[in-house]
Amino acid sequence: MFDLPTLSSNGITLKPLMLSHAIDLAEACQDGELWKINETSVPEPDKVIDYINIAESMPDRQAFVVIDELTGKAIGTTSFHDILPFAKRLEIGYTWYAKSYWRTHVNTTCKLMLLTYIFETLEYQTVGWRTDIGNHRSQAAIERLGAKKDGVIRGNRVRRDGVISDTVMYSLIKYEWPIVKLKLTKNLMMLTKTL
């Protein structure tokens, strides 16, 4: 495994998730009552400490907190998970942001920082994403990044309401990265013109 860096760009900082972020994250998940969205992994406000402890206990997950530098507050999380060092593959997931940050520069900034680190520092070959088949907003966001749909794994996840559901899998390969990086950089320039 590798030590998580602190990454910063466009007023957003990613750093290792710690219990000291719990109060901010409890507030962030209340922005939009995100835990009520059936297809996501956003914790209930009173379960944020458990969420952080679980993230820390998972051997193949390394979690970041997302900080808005303007306020100094944690506004969400994202993680590396299913890390396969020998195959040079990992997935990005457990990503959520307070609803007021949806469709802003935040997700593009985070993904640009993470993908740059994965492909250019770690020199990994493949990045994957997975999402519930019913989470169309997440699928659209992953596709906007430039990831390719690999397929659907049927019946491998259980939603909060107990319904067994399917997972949509996506990936991005290192040779695709230069074009995706250019696209993300251009998108980010447009999004940050108003900052």
Rank of each mutant, 00 (worst) to 15 (best):
L70F: 06
M190N: 14
K183G: 10
K36Q: 12
I133E: 13
V127K: 01
Q139S: 11
K183W: 08
L115N: 04
L34K: 02
L172F: 06
T95I: 09
T167E: 11
K181F: 03
R157S: 09
V66M: 10
E39R: 02
R154V: 08
I142T: 04
S79A: 15
F2R: 10
H81G: 12
S138Y: 03
H21G: 05
K47W: 00
M169P: 00
G146I: 03
D31A: 12
L182N: 11
S9Q: 14
F2E: 15
T108F: 06
D82A: 14
T77I: 05
A87F: 09
M190W: 07
L7F: 02
D31P: 03
I173K: 08
F86G: 06
D132I: 01
Y97N: 02
D68G: 06
M169T: 05
R130P: 02
R61H: 07
I52V: 09
T121R: 11
Y101C: 09
R130T: 06
T77G: 04
R154K: 14
I92H: 01
N10G: 06
K193H: 11
Q30K: 13
W177I: 10
L188G: 07
I92K: 02
N107T: 08
W96M: 03
E143M: 13
T6C: 10
H81Y: 15
Q139R: 14
F80G: 01
T78F: 01
Y175I: 10
V152W: 06
D24C: 05
D60L: 14
S165R: 13
A98R: 01
I52P: 00
K15T: 06
L172A: 03
T167R: 07
P45T: 02
K174L: 09
G11Y: 09
I12A: 05
T108C: 10
V66A: 07
D3L: 13
E44T: 00
R61C: 13
D24W: 00
I118A: 03
Q125K: 06
L4Q: 03
I67V: 13
K36R: 12
H21C: 08
H105C: 02
